[in-house]
Amino acid sequence: MKKMLFYTNLSVLLGIFLSACVTINIYFPAAAAEKAADKIIGEVWQLEEKEEQE
């Protein structure tokens, strides 16, 4: 009985772990997207580039 409870707990934990992996994978990196957008817009509009010159 005790052993069964242990395996139930174990499978619940494993389930949470797997779903955490999936969640992280789908998670949209908002800060990185903003950075990428600023870089591209800066190039398209030829805004002053402080850091890099190409």
């Binding site: 174990l10 934990l13 494993l14 949470i16 772990f17 955490a20 992996c21 969640t23 992280i24 994978n25 998670y27 990196p29 800060a31 990185a32 997207a33 950075k35 990428a36 870089k39 591209i40």
Partner: peptide
């Protein structure tokens, strides 16, 4: 098992940039 939960976070932290 608890330690394993940190793995996805570590993987995510590495790719904080978008490929453009």
């Amino acid at each position: 098992l608890m330690a394993l939960f940190l793995v996805p976070q570590a993987i995510y932290a590495e790719e904080a940039n978008l490929e453009v």
